[in-house]
């Protein structure tokens, strides 16, 4: 492994930890931007140039803007120090450690570091695009329908006025009172 890739891996892990550990959700979001751009760099290092560009445009561009807009709209108060119960933390730690150890050992056995044999593929825009419009044409069209449905669904979920309740604040407090 070359030095830049090791640094990149360390950056990815550090920024992922930042997302989980930051108290303020906005700091989590900024760490996530670093993480997503780092993943794009990994894709570029693996010769997947098309995916590296799409990663930056879709994730770092579109999805993160959406997340930060929602954070801005919702005026979140800072989460208190206590992350979760002790039992929850121990469970999560055990799960994580087990998963990392087992899969890493398995990966090192199954895919040892060796000289590359197969012809090298480059995920250029042309190669990926050709495949998308030939072998994967039907899933590609279905993805378009999925995006359209998600768009309509998101607009319907987020719209303010419901037919049966008058204004949002009074119905909200009424529901809250009912919950007691």
């Amino acid at each position: 492994m070359s030095l830049p890739l090791i640094v990149l891996g360390a950056l990815l892990i550090a920024s992922a930890l930042g997302v989980v550990l930051a108290q303020n959700p906005i700091h989590s979001a900024l760490c996530l931007v670093v993480n997503l751009v780092g993943v794009a760099c990994v894709f570029a290092a693996l010769d997947a140039h098309f995916l590296a560009m799409v990663q930056i445009i879709v994730y770092a561009g579109a999805i993160m803007v959406l997340v930060i807009f929602v954070l801005m709209l919702l005026t979140i108060k800072e989460e208190e120090r206590r992350l979760a119960g002790l039992f929850q933390l121990i469970g999560a730690g055990c799960m994580g450690a087990f998963f990392v150890v087992v899969v890493s050992r398995e990966a090192l056995q199954q895919f040892p570091v060796e000289q590359r044999t197969g012809e090298s593929v480059v995920g250029s825009v042309e190669a990926v695009g050709r495949l998308l419009y030939t072998n994967y044409l039907l899933p590609f069209e279905a993805a378009g329908i999925l995006i359209m449905a998600a768009l309509v669904g998101a607009a319907m979920l987020a719209k303010t006025s419901y037919p049966r309740s008058g204004d949002a604040t009074s119905s909200g407090s009424a529901i809250e009172g009912e919950g007691k």
């Binding site: 992922a16 930890l17 979140i76 890493s104 990966a107 895919f111 570091v113």
Partner: peptide
């Protein structure tokens, strides 16, 4: 040389951090 195993280990570590965060954090956006 082929370093697939190293990339998979990186991937597993990131996945685990994400999974633990999903369990531990209580803010829905995080």
């Amino acid at each position: 040389m082929d370093y697939s195993a190293h990339y998979i280990i990186l991937s597993v570590i990131l996945f685990t951090i994400g999974a633990i965060g999903f369990v531990v954090r209580r803010n829905a956006i995080v």
